[in-house]
Design a protein around this nucleic acid. Sequence first.
RNA 1: GCCCCCAUAGUCUAGCGGCCUAGGACGUCACCCUUUCAAGGUGAAGAUCGCGGGUUCGAAUCCCGCUGGGGGUACCA
Length: 499
Amino acid sequence: MAEITPPVRVRFAPSPTGFLHIGGVRTALFNWLFARHYGGQFILRVEDTDEKRFVVGAADDMMASLRWVGIDWDEGPDIGGPHAPYVQSERNDLGIYRQYVDQLLAAGKAYMSFTTEQELEQMRADATAKGIKAFRFRGPERDWPLERQQELAAQGKPYTVRLKTPLDGTTSFTDLIRGGGEPITVNNSELQDIVLLKSTGMPVYHLAHLVDDHLMNITHVLRAEEWVPSAPYHILLYNALGWEPPVFGHLPVILRQDGKGKLSKRKDDVATNRFWERGYLAEAMFNYLALQGWSYDDHTEIMTPDEIVERFTIDRVQASPARWNPDKLKDMNGIYIRMLSNAELAERLVPFLGAAGLIGMPPSADERAYVERLVPLVHERLEELGEAPELLEFFFRDVSYPDPALLVPKKMDPPGTAAVLRAAYERLAAVEPWSEGQLEEALRALVEELGLKAGQLFGAIRVAVTGRTVAPPLFETLAALGKQRSLARIDAAAQALGG
RNA sequence: GCCCCCAUAGUCUAGCGGCCUAGGACGUCACCCUUUCAAGGUGAAGAUCGCGGGUUCGAAUCCCGCUGGGGGUACCA
């Protein structure tokens, strides 16, 4: 296994074509962990060379997603750095890429290709029709003298610039993660002359990222597995430019939950912002994502970011794909929620309760205090913060009994239940002070006197007071709800049963 | 189709030739705790380490073939 020798500079270079999904965050995270572990720099660069798919605001959205999980960068579009700008369209305006295209052209390593997209499409269609197994485009211009290419270009004929890929021989590269230590090799005959510069004058990913990586002194390229097939082109391009290639490491993709294909923005609910909206803690997401393709040992899963940074070595990154497992993430989120103090959880719950209209935005001091009072009742019942409003709603709103049958416990009838609720009402009316301990004492005594099972009495009161069969523990609930409201609800429930 | 990568329970993973009667986690089930639901505790089911050949005294671990899965095959990244 290759040793990682400092200095180390890595980057994450998303394309602003939409929101950043968790697979992208995972790739960014691994780069970040790599940089932090080996004491190097992590750079963020925006690759917006696809004018057609460009989405306004996407880059900002992506940065917000990265920041949310706790990823920061040493150089980037928003903070600048020694290699600014960090946005490819801006770099293109500066003529950064064109100069290398000219260098390649002059050296005969690339050529101007005048075949149009339509013609290309036709050629592909013809090839399939003829049963040709693989169509690999090599433009006729690759053998023309540069002057002839320039002549046509001067006439205003649109052209792309393509890499002149060797017809025979092999190209290979070593990968930090896959290949089992052996180089990955492809026959050049399997390659084709890829486009470097579009007819619009905009560079294509292959050229732009490579020029930038070189100029920005990137030492290690850790990117998703889907880039493996294009790595040989990149090696060839580095060679053509006379540059030393960086070290490659292709990260496993994250497969969809059913294993059918990689995570998709369109089909899967995996937009990063969806997770904070639903109440996932960034620390849980960080931990979960770190484990998507990396592991520490045979039993450690819950780790702080510092621990992960310290333990993150590239040799422990998996070559086989990870699988998106929302259940596991949810479980982990529950663990992280339980690790929070009541005050911290209350603080994080406020926005959710506010959004649900249960408290003001911002909340009053009283509301804030009340939320903190309620937190212990739901603390260990929460796996997503977004579940809190529903669990706590009855503390803020009156309950109704659309289905009075829910009030009737096992082995009891409506009239009997009404009578029991009346008895409970009388008993509770006398409880003073209205504390958890006093409430328990009073109700347990009543259970004895009525000859009921604890579950029967408590169940009836629970539904009466919360409007639901599943709720936090009864005595704490009554105590937090207050005497007046508790009694009023028990009374209303008894009436609903005709008592 | 062609090229490339990958392959341990339903899922994620530990394992890098003997510590493995294959460890941990999610999920599932049971029991305990208990006023419901959770949480917590205990335990169970679940993997002939994809299949077939080698190499070796010995293989989940190394090699080959097959199969399966995934990725790529754009003037997208």
